[in-house]
Design a protein around this nucleic acid. Sequence first.
DNA 1: TGTACATCAGTGAACGCGCGTTCACTGATGTAC
DNA 2: TGTACATCAGTGAACGCGCGTTCACTGATGTAC
Lengths: 234, 234
Amino acid sequence: MTEAAKTPRERYRQQVREEVKEKAWQQIAGSGASALSLNAIARQMGMSGPALYRYFANRDELITELVRDAYRSLADAFAAVRGAAAEATEPGAESAGPGLAALAGALRDWAVADPHRYFLVYGTPVPGYRAPEDITAIAAEMMSVLLDACAAVPPVSGGASPDGGIDEHLSAHRGWAATHPDLPPSALRLALAFWSRLHGVLSLELAGHFTGMGLDPARLFDAEVRALTEGRAG
Amino acid sequence: MTEAAKTPRERYRQQVREEVKEKAWQQIAGSGASALSLNAIARQMGMSGPALYRYFANRDELITELVRDAYRSLADAFAAVRGAAAEATEPGAESAGPGLAALAGALRDWAVADPHRYFLVYGTPVPGYRAPEDITAIAAEMMSVLLDACAAVPPVSGGASPDGGIDEHLSAHRGWAATHPDLPPSALRLALAFWSRLHGVLSLELAGHFTGMGLDPARLFDAEVRALTEGRAG
DNA sequence: TGTACATCAGTGAACGCGCGTTCACTGATGTAC
DNA sequence: TGTACATCAGTGAACGCGCGTTCACTGATGTAC
């Protein structure tokens, strides 16, 4: 990517690192992140355990890498939605920007494609684990795409600010939306509702709390998306 | 509870079981449920590891018991809200029933009081773990209290059914609300929105996804509660 | 083009650890007559 | 009230396991002259 030419050794190193991560994901998909074992991965690759230490300093570094990749894949999905929206816009016309519904669809597709990846990022936090800075930067990148979409949504007609002082609170604490300094509190509200409501449905679905109720999680998700884009975020 | 007289031995057994669970919760609070170790608990109690097998068949049984207690404590909190509402009602008048806001407060208090307990129930599912039937019964008990509250909320004025066929879907799959066969789909929608939206805010908060954003999770939670009870569930 | 050297991937043995669980046993507590 | 027996809590040793990680080493691959 950043370097044009790579030595064969560098290429090989990267290739093996990728294969390690691939096996790690398979293991996580099977038994969750807490069961991730370097020795088991090595075994699966036909190598001895210590060999992996040529590629990762230790288990924690591998997990951090997996978390980074998980964030990256979601951010890429968001970026793809933005790209597709830009392409669909007539040249010369002002950009329509990505729609909230399209972003919601990308989020759900990403989550459902690999539930354990979802939980690695949005599930029970690993005790004592603190995400490195570049990962929070990826999260900020996603938020920026979301804020773009929220900015494009026209204010709801006759929409008064809700009670409880939430708009004042958001106006006073908008550092997380620093990429969009001109957005009104209602748009910030919309972005937060997008995150929290959709994660609400997804986490209950993927944790299996809807199974046995006979409900179709996709429809519940869809209903929340509609509520966001039509009724607005309350 | 169910039996009037207990032999001293039975009393003692129960006492030790309680102490084991207490230490287990402490351990979970510190390092999460995956790090729960029978030997460590025994050590903490000044006993040898095998002694615990007098009280729990194995590690899984202990975890199941903890999950059950966690559900139980939340269900009790809900029941307490219902009880308080009944007491506040003038005798002779029809019961006002518990308010959604009061139930929401109970849910949040319960979750914030012990985040790891919250995640044991609503977080990343343990691979291969299937909750025994009596636990799903407790969940149904909570749902029943919630449905009571939803039944008491007057329909929103001019509230048409949302698009997307969600009301039809809920009408066709209402087995989970079998305790309330007369509720309209709008009330079922409200109950589901209560669960999914509040869990959305809570899980993001407790997993630390709002830290660093400078936002006050309690206010976000409060805003969602208001949106539920005022604007209605979309 | 060939040789001398440096780099680096991977191995096998080993360390120390803690885990869940089984087993045969000791000693205290309760029960029956 | 006392004795004989059954029940049960708890112990210590042991088994087998897999883990993360370190270390000294071998052999292959790349680099410099």
